[in-house]
Design a protein around this nucleic acid. Structure first.
Lengths: 182, 182
DNA sequence: ATGGCCATGTAAGATGTTACATGATTTA
DNA sequence: TAAATCATGTAACATCTTACATGGCCAT
């Protein structure tokens, strides 16, 4: 195989693989409704990507939805399924193992530019935002847990643990600066 | 201001701001030597970026290194410093608050594609890789700690906590699957 | 019959990647 | 003197973004 899959391509193959044949629009909806919001899942990203995967024979057009709206249902080919399995690993690529990028960490790296009061304001704002977001993710996670322990539950559990670790980190920094965290 | 700064642009401004006037090459070295490895910091990324920042009057050419190798030293303009401060926040943008993207989480989302033994192999591999990487980051963090509590220490502390949370998450999943984690 | 959702796509642009090209200086 | 490092840059390409364009179905 010449091409490795990008993260987005892997996720799209994964969605087709786990939910069965689906339209590009359904894939977009999947991204839009996911709590992650990392990808915009715009038409300009998805449709060309579908064309790419089709040209590489990893997916194929199975049939139209047939309801006059001409939805195109794509399914994995055998090659697509094995490409998906290779992407899923093992082995995990080094980029998957390494610390994920974090915009907050990027900003803390340049704390030296800020005065003590500005740092305190930054930490207060960040702690507030992360705590708020954590609450949402926690209730989402509990929701998933009640619906049985699906993969989605494991995913949001991972997200929850990330946010908790980030919050602990921010609070630790605030503590060192003597900032009240309420 | 018309343009927001990208993460990479923010980091470059931050590096120039904290270390003083420096060459694009020194900035590349900074990225190359950082343990994060998220950006390639290739010439093709940095030099055009420097041109962009210069055109927006956020940095300016201060002088040449004058050692025959014609290194160009760039410094922040006042506009550049205030752009950097705005980028640093507060307020933190929503993209900085949200859960950072994680390739491992992306893969776990499609666990349904794998058989139980394959999941176990995935988790073993991932736990092994993350644990190994964590050790490196831990020793790096201790190194930073001994050198006094710089911003770099706080950054690697954040990275360490992220990795610990990820590892705990992977182990939790392994536990549920009855995988031995040694 | 109007507005909202389903459904497909294209166009222009920003930002990043790898790989290449060039030349000076330091170090083994 | 040969190799590594310092130092600048370009070219071709991939991938993603926003914004636009088009049209059918369905509920109020």
């Amino acid at each position: 195989m010449k091409h490795e899959l990008t993260e987005l391509e892997g996720c799209v193959l994964g969605m087709i693989g786990t939910t069965g044949p689906c339209t590009p629009y359904a894939i977009r909806r999947g991204f839009r409704e996911s709590p992650s919001q990392y990808w915009s899942a715009s038409a300009g990203a998805i449709y060309p990507l579908i064309v790419r995967l089709q040209r590489r024979r990893l997916i194929r057009l199975k049939r139209k939805t047939g309801d006059g709206r001409e939805g195109k249902l794509y399914a994995l080919t055998p090659a697509g399924e094995s490409a998906l399995r290779r992407w899923l690993g093992p082995p995990c690529p080094a980029t998957a193992i390494g610390v994920p990028p974090d915009p907050l960490r990027n900003r803390v790296a340049f704390f030296a530019m800020l005065k003590s009061a500005e740092r305190a304001a930054f930490l207060k704002d960040a702690i507030d935002g992360v705590a708020r977001h954590l609450e949402e993710v926690q209730s989402y996670t509990q929701c998933q847990e009640r619906q049985g322990q699906s993969d989605e539950y494991l995913v949001s559990l991972g997200a929850k643990l990330m946010l908790e670790a980030r919050l602990a980190w921010l609070r630790e920094m605030a503590h060192r600066l003597g900032v009240r965290t309420d």
